[in-house]
Design a protein around this nucleic acid. Structure first.
Lengths: 331, 331
DNA sequence: GGCAGGCGTGGAACCGGTTCCAGTATTGCG
DNA sequence: CGCAATACTGGAACCGGTTCCACGCCTGCC
């Protein structure tokens, strides 16, 4: 029993396919009589238009693609919440989700999108596309918005990571800390850069206060809680350990807290810890952190993208999300 | 500059469109010479086939739909991880994500899918479709797999919630508790049922041990941490409060822990708490819980779905995921 | 009454693939 | 050498929508 097509409806309602199409698309150029007949027939046949066919002939799919490193970080999920929420509010766009964990997957995802007929626009979260990839996407005329990543040719919504690092430094310095450790990401093939920028901000903040940054207190590794824990244990068992640690993300800060607990250090007395992001967990564990409005960045990213889909000629913009220190129990 | 089509390639390579199509689909019926010429032309033009067009003519989209109540619960995310991971391993399927928060969205999602041409199969997480919805999906011949939801007509992967409740009861009874509270979900318009079944299991476990369940110790409300906290505070400030609480989910257990802390109750001495699910947070907060392999259910759900797509005639199966009590610090 | 203009309509052409059939060249075999 | 089977190939028809053009009819105006 094949699904009914627009031609079935037309035949049964005694009209042309053009008229059925016009009814479907709310064109005013249909007589009340014909409209009514078509409507009834559609109900009788339980006819639903094929979105694939519509996509092919219209050249639009009413779908946006979202490219995320899904697993790597708690912050991504929080942003996704904003994305999904905003898209649902819009109503008529579907969401194609691309998880990118490896450089290979990443290349494949961009290659797929290089032909722009799958999605009407692309939201890329926490991944910086290469110049080549950007060029390919632009050649295709595909609207793209970056969240938590920067490229001069594309609209983006970012935070000032360096300023965030400075905020963390100031917060810890203000509590009398001078030996401040840093736990962050090792350079990754996916091209995350925020960790390094936050480290730079930390250094700048220290220098501004006349404290010389120490390379030995900065440790980096793959982004994960357990890895951060291992790194923090190394920091804390040094001969002259730091009295405070700035972690490049909340997820890593949790690892630091675990290390402190494992080594019997009291927080915040023996060790102060400040994270970055303010994911949901941070509040639960009462972690002091540099807050960025994750969810809002997702919402805002979708808004920029929808605007870009409507008007693809607009120049790329950069929006800066605000950073604030949320003081809780770990400092 | 229009994107090149298969006809552009054919013309430039001096072959017919049939030959190009055969090259694209790795048909053996192409001479080495022609194949080579087509391949080169494809590279030169940077030609990428249109998946929309392919979807239309093949009647398959290489896309699976995933319907989730995205926000409602931590467990959903963990399952999604499994889904995404397994789908990525497969490689050639895309993921269309449908978030369903309200009854209205839910109806809309199912209506959309009623015409089965958007996706090749549907994975529904934690939502029980109505008989009408099931009928519509079946009429369309769309393969569907449910995860954490049951319907006799569809393949599903579930846990025995009643048995899980009994496990929780036994665990607490074994530690000497007799007054055991329950914090769970109020009946929701989306038709979640697991909370009630877990409560039933708790009661059954108590009765088996000769303890009479008390209605007054069972409280229910919307599924959220804060709501659970409020409910737990009510329980704990009763004249004769429970010495242990079984929460229908880890998220709610966290609310119970917050309530205990706010009221100065020590855990587990004054109050034992056991949750359900074993989400990532549970481990971090050292919450005792009835573990279900969330991620694996996502993986397995996709596997069942892919199998159903390959052979749509197979009869629906039910797979039961295993439950175990993970003992940590809250009991 | 004749004509311009607008409304409503039907359906061919098109979107960009796949499928399949008909046709040609080559090979193998008796 | 003749014939059939085999290996390739080209392109029409099709998937199910949208778009647009041509056409008929009605209305209003001179």
């Amino acid at each position: 029993m094949r699904a009914p097509t627009i031609r079935d409806v037309a035949r049964r309602a005694n009209v042309g396919i053009g008229t059925v199409s016009r009814v479907l698309n709310d064109s005013p150029l249909v007589s009340a009589d014909a409209r009514e007949r078509v409507r009834r027939t559609i109900d009788e046949l339980a006819y639903r238009p094929s979105s694939t066919a519509r996509g092919l002939s219209r050249g639009r799919t009413q779908t946006v693609g979202v490219v995320v490193p899904f697993f790597t970080s708690g912050s991504v999920l929080e942003r996704m919440r904003g994305v999904v929420e905003r898209l649902n509010r819009e109503g008529d766009y579907d969401l194609l989700l691309f998880d990118v964990e490896t450089a290979k997957q990443r290349a494949a995802a961009f290659r797929d999108f290089a032909r722009g007929d799958r999605v009407d626009g692309l939201l890329i979260i926490s991944i910086r596309p290469s110049d080549d990839e950007v060029a390919a996407l632009q050649r295709e005329g595909l609207p793209v918005v970056l969240v938590d990543a920067r490229h001069p040719a594309m609209s983006r919504i970012v935070v000032d990571d360096v300023a965030g690092g400075e905020l963390a430094a100031q917060h810890l310095l203000g509590r009398g800390h001078r030996r401040i450790g840093f736990v962050g990401d090792a350079p990754s093939p996916l091209g995350f850069t925020s960790s390094e920028l936050r480290r730079k901000g930390l250094r700048r903040g220290l220098q501004a206060a006349g404290v010389a940054p120490e390379r030995a207190l900065e440790v980096r590794g793959p982004h994960s809680r357990t890895e951060a824990r291992r790194l923090a244990e190394r920091l804390l068992t040094m001969p002259d350990p730091p009295t405070a640690v700035f972690a490049a993300s909340d997820v890593q800060a949790l690892g630091v807290l675990e290390a402190a607990r494992a080594l019997g250090r009291r927080v915040p007395d023996d060790l102060a810890v400040i994270g970055f992001d303010d994911i949901e967990l941070a509040e639960l564990l009462e972690l002091t952190t540099v807050r960025q409005p994750l969810r809002e960045t997702g919402v805002r990213g979708i808004e920029l993208l929808l605007a870009a889909i409507r008007d693809p000629t607009a120049a790329p913009v950069e929006e800066l999300a605000e950073l604030t220190v949320v003081e809780r129990r770990t400092t």
